[in-house]
């Protein structure tokens, strides 16, 4: 906040990086082959997944180990509705996915935040998440362990004109626009009253409680917003991958946003996005080293944790600070 003007060049770097990323995602279909376009679509949704997860993790320090349950709830709810009532406008099926995610997060949030904290919160959400994973795998309406197959990409009907999203890269751009919208909303929450209150709670829980702030209420708000946005990301995924299986509710999928946040740096808004992009790059570049993938990904993760506590963005900020002026205080969040 009190950064001096000499750091202008450095302050601009994040903005330039952001603009470059935006441009890269916007133009992927023009320069990349099909596999990469598909991957970029999934990556954007994973970024939203991780950023929404970080509302809880980064702002309150609570590790929700069942976030994939919301992702799966959104994906399954919208996919189920669109196959059950194919004539419904796509926006409604999407909203239905978000709604189911919101309800589930109210339920789990009320229970988990009320009953547990710290590592217990993590394991309780893990157990509830695994329960939902198992239940999806047992329900015939949701295709049991085999999932829902052949999910069609929708038509967007605007009355005057229609956009058939099954053609070419149209659905990619829908994901692009929707993800951008959700990221802007998340940015707004993170930097708004709720975000500021939560980070104050994280730093000074007792003092804030003293001021008469209902700490749990605020955490519940964040939990529900996080769950809803995650569910919307899931709902957008279903028509993109055209098949969803219970794997997206599995605990290993819940581990992904945690990984992204820690990799990129959870105290910064953009940290999880950086983590997701770096991780996807790592996985994609090692995909043909059959049998070596675990060793390479595992080794790289271990290196980041040991050599860069605070994640990639945290380390960059630290380096930047050292270069600028070693005496200066903590750098501000981007």
């Amino acid at each position: 906040m009190d950064n001096n003007t000499t750091s202008f060049g450095f302050k601009a770097t994040p903005l330039i990086a952001l603009a470059l990323c935006f441009a890269a995602f916007a133009t992927v279909p023009f320069w990349a082959e099909k596999g990469l376009v598909f991957l970029a679509g999934i990556l954007m949704l994973q970024i939203v997944f991780a950023l929404s997860f970080n509302l809880i993790f980064g702002l309150t320090g609570l590790v929700s180990f069942g976030q994939a349950a919301f992702f799966a709830a959104g994906a399954y709810a919208s996919a189920w509705l669109s196959s059950y009532a194919p004539d419904l406008p796509f926006v409604l099926t999407l909203a239905f996915g978000g709604l189911v995610g919101a309800l589930l997060s109210v339920l789990i949030g009320m229970v988990a935040l009320h009953r547990a904290s710290g590592i217990y919160f993590a394991i309780l959400t893990l157990a509830l998440g695994q329960l939902i994973y198992t239940l999806i795998g047992k329900s015939t309406a949701l295709g049991r362990e085999d999932g829902l197959i052949g999910i069609t990409r929708p038509n967007l009907n605007f009355g005057l004109f229609e956009i058939d999203l099954s053609r070419g890269d149209d659905y990619y751009y829908l994901i692009f626009v929707a993800s951008a919208g959700m990221i802007v909303s998340l940015w707004w929450v993170w930097h708004g009253t709720l975000g500021r209150t939560l980070s104050a709670i994280r730093q000074e829980p007792e003092r804030i409680r003293f001021l008469g702030v209902n700490v749990r209420r605020y955490r519940e708000y964040a939990f529900v917003i996080s769950g809803t946005v995650t569910a919307l990301a899931g709902a957008l995924l279903a028509p993109w991958s055209q098949i969803i299986t219970p794997m997206i509710a599995h605990w290993s999928y819940s581990a992904l946003p945690i990984l992204f946040c820690l990799l990129g740096g959870s105290t910064r808004f953009w940290g999880p996005a950086v983590g997701a992009i770096v991780f996807a790059g790592l996985e994609h570049s090692t995909r043909n080293m059959f049998g070596m993938a675990e060793l390479i990904v595992g080794g790289a993760l271990l290196f980041v944790v040991l050599a860069m506590p605070g994640g990639i963005l945290g380390t960059i900020a630290l380096l930047r600070q050292k270069i600028l002026s070693p005496a200066e205080g903590r750098p501000s969040d981007e």
């Binding site: 581990a255 675990e294 990904v297 595992g298 080794g299 944790v305």
Partner: peptide, 12 residues
């Protein structure tokens, strides 16, 4: 995340 990485390494 560190111990998850070690799990991957042990599988590899």
């Amino acid at each position: 995340i560190a111990t998850y990485a070690i799990l991957l390494l042990s599988e590899g």
